[in-house]
Design a protein around this nucleic acid. Structure first.
Length: 1137
RNA sequence: GGGCUUGUAGCUCAGGUGGUUAGAGCGCUACACUGAUAAUGUAGAGGUCCGUGGUUCGAGUCCACGCAGGCCCA
C-alpha cells in the first residue's frame, strides 16, 4: 500500500497525539529553526504569561495567533527563534499567597517575615508551569520551553536595573508625587484592590458648599460684565462635597462644549447684587421659577425668593483663560502663594459634567486625582507650604495625620475629618467644613450651603474616610519623549489598525508620566539609594556596581560586612536589598528607596533582559531587536504593548516591534465572559483531546477575525471538523483507496505535462495557483481568518464538490491510462499544496496529510534534493504560485458550468425528473459569442453532470429570444442625478425594437420629461430571462431551459441507469469487492425492462462488471429490485476465476 | 464619565470606493442522489441590516445623536 488508509471517522485527537510524539522524537521544532541557520530572521517576542493559574481556552486563542505567523515565516525560509518566558512578579501572586496563608498585607513583617513571604511567592508563581507546558505542546504552539527567560531571576532583575540606570542617567527617572487614596488614621496608602473591598463605599452626610469665585475684570472676562451699570460683582459658581479643600483651590475646570449662562441675581446670605456663571442645564437647581425675570429693583434683603435673569450664554471654551481672585488669600491670614499668574484661572477638563453641582469643578491639585492631572496638564501650581522639618521641602496644607498645617490662619491645626477620634458630640461642635461654610457665608463667597448625602470610600481598617493625598512616587518621564512615541507608533503595523490609531494612539496623545512605584514585596526593587535628606542619591546598574558600593560602605563603616562578596549567589529581592546601606560621597549613609517597580517594566524590558543585555550578549540583542511580530490580547494595549514601546523609544530610539496583532476576548457561546465562578469556562485540555488541536485552532481562526471577540461554541468546532476536516479527509481517503488499488505512486518526475491535462484538471490547478497567491497575501498582511476561509472554500467547494465529484469516473475503471494518471497527479498536487497552506493553522493535520501524501516519494526526493525532500511539512519551503497556470477564462467558464448545472438541477426538480433519467437537451440563450464559446468548451462537463445529451444555444437568429433591459443605475446616476428616476422608468419601458436599435447602432435617442437624451449600451443591461413556451430558471444574466420531451430511447436509458444503480447497491450489500466480476439473471416478462436491457446491455454490463446479464422465466432465492413501475426478482453470482 | 470596539436570517459570519432583488455555512422542512456514504445535490421557510434624524436621485454602506453588549481607563 502506497498510501495509508484509515477507518472512518478519523480520530483527530489521536492524530494530534501521534504527530506530537513524532515531532518530539525527530526534533522537528529544533530542525525548523536550525535548518534555517544563516537565512534572514523573523524576530518574534513571546509576551510572558504568568504560571500562577491554570491556562484557559483564551490562551489557546492568543497562542494560535502567535504560532501561525512564526510557522508561516518558517515556511518562507526565515529563521524564527522563539524564546519562551515567564512573568513572575506582581500583585496577583501576592494576593494568592495571602489568601492561601490567610493573612493580609498588615501581617507581612509581623506574622510572616518578608523573606518567608517572598519565598512563598517564588514557590507559588510557577505552580502551574507543568500544565502550561503541557498545553503549549498539545495545542502545537512551538516555542522554546527549555531556555525561557524568567523575570525573578537575578540576571533578569540585574538587566532591569541596568536599564533603569540608563534612564536615570538620561534624566528620565525622577521622584515626584501622585494623588492616591490614603488613610491618615492608618498612615498608609490604599491600593485600588483595597478600595474595591466590599463595604468601603458608604453613604455619608457632608456639608457641601457652592462657592463663589470672584472674576477679575479684564479683556478676557469683559463679556461677563455686560451692562455692568452697578456695583455687582461677577462670580463663577463651583460646588464641592469637601469644603476643606477650598482654601487649597488654585483652579476651576469647565467642559469645553458645555453651555453656560451668566445670571443676574443676589447673594442669598448677604443679599448683595451679583452675577454668577453656571451651566445652563443646572440653573433650575438654584433658581426657582417664581424668581425668573422678577424685578431686581424691588428685591429687599431678607426676601425668600431670589429674582434672577439670564444675561448671557457661553460655551465652556469661551470661559477658558478667565482669571479669578483667590478664595482665602494672604489678606485673610492664609499662607502666601507663588505662581499667581499661572493659578486661579479657568481651564477645560474632560471630566466635567452637568450631572450635579454647577457644571464647574473646583480644582485643588493636591487633593484629587483629576485635579492633579488637569492642573499638571495646564501648568497650574498647587498651594504648598514649607515643611517644618525641612524648609527646602514643600508640603500640602494638610499633614499626613489629616489636619491642617499651622499656617492655615484661623483654621490652622484643625482636623480635616475626625481622624483622631476626638469628641464631636457637643451641640456647638463645628466640623472644619462647617466652620469654613460659616466664614464664607460672612464673606459673601458662599452661594449655597447644605448637607448632602453621598457615597464616599472609607479605609477598610480604620473605618475613617479616605483622603486623596499626594504620596511620593518614582516616575519615568515618558512625557519627555511623547512626540517621538507618537511618531514611531505611526510606523508600526497594527492589526487591527484602529487599535494602533485609536486605543493606543489616543493613549499616547494623553500620556502622563509612568508611575513606576509600587509599595509591595514581591517584585523588582527600585535600585536607588538616598541619603535621609534626599540631597544625595545613587542609582545602581549592576550587581558588580552594588558590590563595589557596599565595599565602600564597609570601609566607611556604614555596613559591617559585604553580604554579597565576589562569588556568592545574589538575590536582589526584598528583604535582602533593604538590608544594604551605602555611603554617599559626602559620607552620609544612604538607604534604598523602599518601593518596588511596576511589573509592566519587567515585561517591557524583555527584549533586553531575556539576553541579560546590556550587561552581556550585545550582538544577540542587536540581531533580535526590534521584533518583527508580537501578538497579545487587546487588554495588553496599555500594558505590555505600551511598556515595550516606551522602553524601545527611550532606550534605543526605535520601535520595539514592527507588526502587532491585538486579539479579542474569548467569551462563552452566549457572549458572556468566561469565569470559573460561573462555570462557563471551557477546559482547553478536554477540548483539544475531544476535537483535536487542529479543529480547535481552525475554528478559532476561521470563525471570526482574531481581533473580534470570539463567542466560543463547541458546536462550531464540530462543524469545522465535519465540514472542512471531514471533507479533506474524505478527499484523501478517496485518493488513497484508488491509488492503492491501481498501485499508483505519485512522483515528482515524469508527470503528465500540464498542456496535456483536461480542462477540469487545468481548472483546479489554476484555482490552486490563485489560492496560493491569495493565501500568501493574507498571511503576509496578518489576516489569518481570510487565509483559513479561502483554504476551506477551495477544499470543500472546488476540490471536493466539483473536481473530485466530476472526476470520480476517471478513477473507477480500467487500466492506469494517461488520463487516470493525470487525475491522480492533479489531486495529489492539490492535496500536497493544501497541506502546506494549512500548516500554520492546523499543524498536526497538515503534517498527517503531507506525510501520507509524500512519504512514498521521500527517498527519491531526498536523493535528488527536491522541494518534497523534508520529512516534515513544517520544514518545507512554501510553494510559489505558478502564475502561467492561472487561466481566468477557464475559471470563468467553469463557473458558468457550475451555475448552468445548478439551474438545470433546479428545473429537473420542478418538473419532477430525476437525474438518472437522461434528457435530450438544455437550451441556453446567449447574447454574445464569447459566452457561447465559453459554455461550448464545458458542454461535456455540464452534460455529464446533469445527464442531458447536449447543450443548445439560442442566439438572435433563432428568433425566439425575448430580451429585457435593466437600467444600470450606477452609470445613469452619475450622468442624470435627480432625473434618474424618470430615466430609469423610461428604460424599463423600452420596446424590443428600441433594444434592437440600441444593440445595432450603439445608441438610442429617447425623450424623458420632454427632454431628449441619448442612451449608450453601457447605460443598460440587456438580458433574456424568458423563453416563451419553456420552463426556465434564471441566475443573474444566465438563463436555462430544459427540454423535458421523453423518447423511448431516453426512457430505456433511464431504466438502464436505474438497473445499474440497483445492481450496484446489491453488489455492495452482498459484500462484493470493487473488482469482483458477477453473473446476473433477471426475471423475464416485463417488456420495458427487456427492451432497455436489449438496447443498453453493454453499458449495464460494463458498469456493474457483469460477465453475463440474462433473463430467465424463473428466478428464485434472490432479491427483488423495485423501481419506477418495475418489480423484478434477480439472481447475482460471483463469476471470478 | 472618557477612549476604542461590536450590533446584518434561529446561530456563526461575508457584504472595496453609496446603485435599487442584502449573501454564505450551520440549523429547520421537503424532495432527490448514492462504489467518497456519519458524504452530497436541489428547493422552501426564515431579515424593520439596533433605533432616530440627516446628506443624496439613491444609504446595510457616509454624517450626527441615541440604545445595547464588550474591552481599557477614570
Amino acid at each position: 500500500m502506497n498510501y495509508p488508509e484509515y477507518k472512518q471517522p478519523l480520530n483527530y485527537g489521536q492524530v494530534g497525539t501521534d504527530i506530537l510524539a513524532w515531532w518530539k522524537q525527530n526534533g522537528i521544532f529544533e530542525k525548523s529553526v536550525s535548518s534555517r541557520e544563516g537565512q534572514p530572521t523573523f524576530v518574534f517576542y513571546e509576551g510572558p504569561p504568568s504560571a500562577n493559574g491554570a491556562p484557559g481556552i483564551h490562551h489557546v486563542m492568543a497562542r494560535t495567533v502567535k504560532d501561525i505567523f512564526c510557522r508561516y515565516q518558517t515556511l518562507l525560509g526565515k529563521q524564527v527563534n522563539r524564546k519562551g518566558g515567564w512573568d513572575t512578579h506582581g500583585l496577583p501572586i501576592e494576593l494568592q499567597v495571602e489568601k492561601e496563608l490567610g493573612i493580609t498585607k498588615e501581617d507581612i513583617g509581623k506574622k510572616i517575615s518578608i523573606e518567608d513571604y517572598n519565598q512563598r511567592c517564588r514557590e507559588t508563581v510557577m505552580r502551574f508551569k507543568a500544565q502550561w507546558d503541557d498545553l503549549t505542546e498539545k495545542m502545537g504552539y512551538w516555542v522554546d520551553l527549555d531556555d525561557p527567560y524568567i523575570t525573578f531571576e537575578p540576571e533578569y532583575i540585574e538587566s532591569c536595573w541596568a536599564l533603569l540606570k540608563k534612564l536615570y542617567d538620561k534624566g528620565l527617572l525622577y521622584k515626584g508625587y501622585t494623588i492616591q487614596p490614603y488613610s491618615p488614621a492608618a498612615g498608609t496608602g490604599l491600593s485600588s484592590h483595597e478600595l474595591n473591598q466590599p463595604g468601603t463605599y458608604r453613604d455619608v452626610k457632608d456639608t457641601t458648599i457652592v462657592a463663589q469665585f470672584k472674576v477679575k475684570r479684564d479683556d478676557k472676562s469683559e463679556k461677563l460684565f455686560v451692562g455692568a451699570d452697578d456695583a455687582a460683582e461677577t462670580f463663577i459658581l463651583a460646588w464641592t462635597t469637601t469644603p476643606w479643600t477650598l482654601p487649597g483651590n488654585t483652579g476651576l475646570a469647565v467642559g469645553k462644549n458645555i453651555p453656560y449662562v451668566l445670571v443676574r441675581t443676589f447673594n442669598p446670605y448677604t443679599f448683595a447684587p451679583i452675577r454668577v456663571v453656571l451651566a445652563e442645564a443646572l440653573v433650575g437647581r438654584y433658581f426657582s421659577e417664581k424668581g425668573k425675570d422678577a424685578s431686581l429693583e424691588e428685591f429687599k434683603a431678607g426676601d425668600k425668593v431670589l429674582p434672577w435673569r439670564i444675561e448671557g450664554s457661553f460655551k465652556g471654551a469661551d470661559l477658558v483663560g478667565i482669571h479669578y481672585e483667590r478664595l482665602f488669600g494672604t489678606n485673610k491670614g492664609f499662607p502666601s502663594f507663588e505662581g499667581d499668574e499661572r493659578a486661579f484661572r479657568v481651564v477645560a477638563g474632560d471630566f466635567v459634567t452637568t450631572e450635579d453641582g454647577t457644571g464647574i469643578v473646583h480644582i485643588s491639585p493636591t487633593f484629587g486625582a483629576d485635579d492633579f492631572k488637569v492642573a499638571q496638564l495646564n501648568d497650574i501650581p498647587a498651594l504648598l507650604v514649607p515643611d517644618k522639618d525641612d524648609p527646602n521641602k514643600k508640603v500640602p496644607i494638610v499633614d499626613r495625620t489629616g489636619r491642617y498645617v499651622v499656617e492655615m490662619g484661623e483654621f490652622g491645626g484643625r482636623w480635616v475629618k475626625n481622624y483622631d477620634g476626638h469628641d464631636d458630640s457637643g451641640t456647638d461642635y463645628k466640623t472644619l467644613d462647617e466652620s469654613i461654610a460659616i466664614r464664607m457665608k460672612g464673606d459673601g463667597t458662599a452661594f449655597k450651603v447644605e448637607k448632602y448625602e453621598h457615597t464616599y470610600p472609607h479605609c477598610w481598617r480604620t473605618d475613617k474616610p479616605v483622603l486623596y493625598y499626594p504620596l511620593d512616587s518614582w516616575f519615568i518621564k515618558t512625557t519627555a519623549v511623547k512626540d517621538r512615541l507618537i511618531e514611531l507608533n505611526k510606523t508600526i503595523n497594527w492589526q487591527p489598525a484602529s487599535t494602533g490609531t485609536g486605543r493606543f494612539g489616543n493613549w499616547l496623545e494623553n500620556l502622563v508620566d509612568w508611575n513606576l512605584s509600587r509599595s509591595r514585596y514581591w517584585g523588582t526593587p527600585l535600585p536607588i539609594w538616598r541619603t535621609q535628606d534626599g540631597t544625595e542619591e545613587i542609582c545602581i546598574g549592576s550587581i558588580a556596581e552594588l558590590r563595589q558600593e557596599i565595599d565602600k560602605a564597609v570601609a566607611a563603616e556604614v555596613m559591617t560586612h559585604n553580604p554579597i562578596p565576589e562569588g556568592a549567589t545574589v538575590d536582589l529581592h526584598r528583604p535582602y536589598v533593604d538590608d544594604i546601606f551605602l555611603v554617599s560621597p559626602s559620607g552620609q549613609p544612604m538607604y534604598r528607596e523602599p518601593d518596588l517597580i511596576d511589573v509592566w517594566f519587567d515585561s517591557g524590558a524583555m527584549p533586553y533582559a531575556q539576553w541579560h543585555y546590556p550587561l552581556e550578549n550585545k550582538e544577540t540583542f542587536e540581531k533580535n531587536f526590534p521584533a518583527d511580530f508580537i501578538a497579545e490580547g487587546v487588554d495588553q494595549t496599555r500594558g505590555w504593548f505600551f511598556t515595550l514601546h516606551a522602553l524601545g523609544v527611550m532606550l534605543e530610539d526605535s520601535v520595539a516591534f514592527k507588526n502587532v496583532m491585538a486579539n479579542g476576548l474569548v467569551l462563552d457561546k452566549n457572549g458572556n465572559k468566561m469565569s470559573k465562578r460561573l462555570g462557563n469556562a471551557v477546559d482547553p485540555f478536554a477540548t483539544i483531546q475531544q476535537f483535536g488541536p487542529d479543529a480547535t485552532r481552525w475554528y478559532m481562526i476561521a470563525n471570526a477575525q482574531p481581533w473580534d471577540n470570539l463567542k466560543f461554541d463547541l458546536a462550531g468546532i464540530t462543524e469545522v471538523q465535519r465540514r472542512f476536516f471531514g471533507t479533506l479527509f474524505n478527499t484523501y481517503s478517496f485518493y488513497a483507496l484508488y491509488a492503492n488499488l491501481d498501485g499508483f505512486q505519485a512522483r515528482e518526475f515524469d508527470r503528465v505535462p500540464h498542456a496535456e491535462l483536461t480542462e477540469l484538471d487545468r481548472w483546479i490547478l489554476s484555482k490552486l495557483q490563485s489560492l496560493i497567491l491569495e493565501v500568501r497575501g493574507y498571511y503576509d498582511s496578518y489576516d489569518p481568518t481570510k487565509a483559513a476561509r479561502a483554504i476551506q472554500d477551495f477544499v470543500t467547494d472546488q476540490l471536493s464538490n466539483w473536481h473530485v465529484r466530476l472526476s470520480r469516473r476517471r478513477f473507477w475503471k480500467g487500466e492506469l491510462t494517461a488520463d487516470k494518471k493525470a487525475a491522480y497527479e492533479t489531486l495529489q498536487e492539490c492535496l500536497v499544496v493544501v497541506s502546506q497552506l494549512m500548516a500554520p493553522i492546523a499543524p498536526f493535520f497538515a503534517e498527517w496529510l503531507y506525510q501520507n501524501m509524500t512519504n512514498g516519494m521521500r527517498e527519491e526526493a531526498v536523493a535528488k534534493n527536491t522541494p518534497l525532500a523534508p520529512e516534515s511539512v513544517h520544514l518545507t519551503l512554501l510553494v510559489q504560485a505558478n502564475e502561467t497556470r492561472i487561466d481566468k477564462a477557464l475559471e470563468e467558464r467553469m463557473e458558468l458550468a457550475q451555475r448552468i448545472s445548478s439551474l438545470t438541477h433546479s428545473l429537473r426538480k420542478k418538473s419532477v425528473l430525476k437525474v438518472r433519467q437522461p434528457l435530450q437537451r438544455i437550451l441556453v440563450p446567449v447574447l454574445n459569442d464569447t459566452t457561447r464559446e465559453q459554455v461550448a468548451k464545458v458542454e461535456d462537463l455540464i452534460c455529464a453532470e446533469v445527464n442531458v445529451k447536449h447543450v443548445e444555444f439560442l442566439d438572435d437568429t433563432s428568433g425566439v429570444l425575448v430580451k429585457s433591459v435593466k437600467p444600470n443605475f450606477k452609470r445613469l446616476g452619475q450622468q442624470y442625478g435627480a432625473r434618474l428616476k424618470a430615466v430609469g422608468a423610461r428604460i424599463q419601458q423600452m420596446t424590443p425594437e428600441e433594444i434592437s436599435t440600441l444593440e445595432k447602432t450603439g445608441q438610442l435617442a429617447v425623450e424623458v420629461d420632454g427632454q431628449p437624451i441619448t442612451l449608450a449600451p453601457d447605460d443598460v443591461e440587456i438580458r433574456t430571462d424568458d423563453l416563451p413556451g419553456w420552463l426556465v430558471a434564471t441566475d443573474g444574466p444566465l438563463t436555462v431551459a430544459l427540454d423535458v420531451t421523453l423518447t423511448d430511447e431516453l426512457r430505456h436509458e433511464g431504466v438502464a441507469r436505474e438497473l445499474v444503480n440497483r445492481l450496484q447497491n446489491l453488489r455492495k450489500d452482498s459484500g462484493l469487492e470493487v473488482q469482483d466480476k458477477i453473473r446476473v439473471t433477471l426475471a423475464s416478462g416485463q417488456a420495458g425492462l427487456e427492451a432497455a436491457v436489449q438496447s443498453f446491455g453493454d453499458y449495464i454490463r460494463g458498469e456493474i462488471q457483469a460477465v453475463a446479464l440474462d433473463f430467465a422465466a424463473d428466478v428464485n432465492g434472490g432479491s427483488v429490485l423495485e423501481f419506477d413501475e418495475y418489480k423484478v426478482p434477480v439472481q447475482l453470482e460471483v463469476a471470478n476465476g
